[in-house]
Amino acid sequence: MISLTRRSWLTLAVMALLAVLPPVFYLTGNPYYLDLATRLAILAIAAVSLNLILGYGGLVSFGHAAFVGLGAYAVGIPAHHWLYGGLDFLATTSGLVQIPLAVAVCALFALVTGAICLRTKGVYFIMITMAFAQMIYYLIVSIEEYGGDDGLVIDTRSELPVVNLDNPLHLFGLSYVALVVAMLLVRMIVRSRFGMVLQGAKGNPERMVTLGFNVYAYRLTAYVISGAMSGFAGALLGNFTTFISPEMMDWSRSGELMFMVILGGAATTLGPVLGAIVFIVAEEALSSFTIYWHLPFGLMLMAVVLFARGGLMGMLRGRGEDRE
């Protein structure tokens, strides 16, 4: 007999609402909410992927927005050359090229930077992940051809079979399905033997090493998976905004992703999605009042860290459900 925990019910309910409500709004003449939900789903993919290393791996990466930005540029740069010429081998509007490119570039960037970052610990790890992200930020700023810090307009969205990304419903559908797949993927990984090692290394790396696990290699693998998934989210984000700029990779963007994971509940399946929902709603509600809308955000996060360890998911925990 299948008995679901309170958490599982909540996950199913939230994901069902997220699937149904936005299209209903759209079809009843409120297209704005569909856009909001699309952005939510895309940011949630990035948060879910960050959760793999931050929540389950205990690796506080403060540079995750770099992967999102790189993924977006992997769509924007080929589209730019397709329209304006140059670099013929790159020029394309095909999503079947752009999206794998986004994933591959981010995986490679994660492999190279992760190999270095993961040799450090604690605050140093936080600083160096942030430093690599800023490095990419300034690299893009310095390239005139792609608009420097003015950014780049994506004139043509990725062309894909079956779905038409110019249709908001299609773009939402793809983002939503991608989010569900990302959640299931991370869930599968953290429950696997690999995931147990990753979580063990979060709790006690010295023990894991003396058991015979090369903790560094496991963490690096998780870092690459996480970076690649965020690159995918970036490719979607580029298609959603059709305007990309280095600002997407700013450290404050990385901070927002961390906010979503920690506020929603690190090391839970639904947590990052809940965090993304709170983030989007708060941004909407607060940014119309004040440009300093990040301040109440910071206060909210502090309250959660101080009073509700485990984030929103932690508050909803039922007896005997404290582990995934």
Binding site: M188, I189, R191, S192, R193, F194, G195, M196, V197, G200, M208, L211, G212, F213, Y218, T221
Partner: peptide
């Protein structure tokens, strides 16, 4: 179980739930 698992050589196994 992690100690037992450690004997397998490596744990780059991602599919089955441990």
């Amino acid at each position: 179980a992690l100690a037992v698992q450690a004997r397998d050589g490596h744990s780059f196994r991602f599919i089955r739930a441990a």
